[in-house]
Design a protein around this nucleic acid. Sequence first.
DNA 1: GCCAACGTTGGC
DNA 2: GCCAACGTTGGC
Length: 149
Amino acid sequence: MKTEPNTYSIDDLKRDGQTQWEGVRNYQARNLMRDEMREGDRVLFYHSSANPPGVAGEARVVREAYPDYFAQNPDSPYFDEKASPEDPRWFMVDVEFVRRLPNFVSLDSLKSAKGLEDMIVTKRSRLSVQPVTNDEFNIVCALGDGGSA
DNA sequence: GCCAACGTTGGC
DNA sequence: GCCAACGTTGGC
């Protein structure tokens, strides 16, 4: 899951313990949250538009998809006039802090790591929620733990 | 700040 | 249903 650290960083999640992942307004990302993410799923927490961009930590899904009611609040920056209680249109999950990675894993190192050639973030970086394979997840964690993966 | 990639919108 | 216009994202 990607976030701009200026807006919400891994340290914000650490402080809060857990948070609602509101504001996703892309259908592919929404579908992944709604249809694929399950309670207990591990999450790589990625800092985008950062210096450098990369994976900063690990999180976990603690609540499966439910309506993103921010879309129904006209005062929210995430308001969508087409969302309603009958058809919420957008969904969010709750995630909790697991850990900060001892070593930040930059996008550069993701791109050069063996085994991550097909990782979506190294190719189609715009999608804000992306599926990660078990192998990819383990390689990133190994890099983040300081290993050479 | 630039710009490429790409998703969305709306006219036809 | 096509596609041009437009808006957003995010790396650089």
